[in-house]
Amino acid sequence: MATITDTAVRQRPGRRPNRRPRSRSVGATGRYVLLALMLLFALLPFAWMLITAIKPAAEAYTTPIIWWPSTPTVENFVAVLTKTDFPRVVLNTVIVAVSAALISTTVAVLAAYGLSRLAGKRAQVLMISLLFAQMIPTVLLVIPYFLIFRRLGLVDTLLALVITNVSFTAPIATWLLLRFIGKVPKELDAAAMIDGCTRLGALRRVVLPAARSGVAAVFFYTFLVAWHEYLFALSLTSSPQNQVATLSIASLVGQYSVSWGQLMALGILVALPLIVLFLMVERSLIEGLAGGVKG
């Protein structure tokens, strides 16, 4: 009963297999206390973000501090929604993040399969080079990219952001996926090929489904990285119709003043879809990661 996939399958709502004997040393109460402390650490900043967002301007910053607004208001949300072109910003960000994640994941699936099935001696070199992208300060990549995109006529397009995000996420996605796809028994696709599939066919029809939770995990991870990217977005796009969420957040920090209420409201609006999406994919994400890391 080792695989997490199995655990997850058996663990449908309500049932919790009682099968983790360790950590008995710390009593349940102790563990709850520790978890509660961690939870406080993780969630208190969110709580403050929410409280700030629903405070009327006059109560946002007072001494002594007002912990809960006398009359919670949505004025900050309204202001943000009317001031920024929020639907467009979100749409842009979704387009960039989804495209980048799709492309990266596709590249990664192919390459990870190739590395686990076909690669020879040079695999190690290739794998190390996959980490290169994570090493150089982003600042330095901006100029070369700008020059390339200018030549290609891609400056100030969302496509430019998709490409730069892919350049960061595809290698790391390959790296992560390698573990997932490597774990799919080679006999599976061998059998499929005997049945007349091409290699690609075997990948698509046998390996991919077998590793799908891993693929989903990697997809979400790359999606998240692309959603968070800031410096390329700042440098490579300019017109408002191409603005993405991180840029929209930063531009609320003005020269003269920062409306923290509005900033936090926008923060919530940006974080909310991510959190909802995360909750939706969480199960397969964790399943996927576990599938990939198991020994």
């Binding site: 939870l39 993780a42 959603w227 991180t246 957040i249 959190i275 995360f278 909750l279």
Partner: peptide
Amino acid sequence: SALLFPWVIPTVLVALL
């Protein structure tokens, strides 16, 4: 689920927060 929330919000926002 709740412990993973901080991970999903953008860095720029994390810093401002």
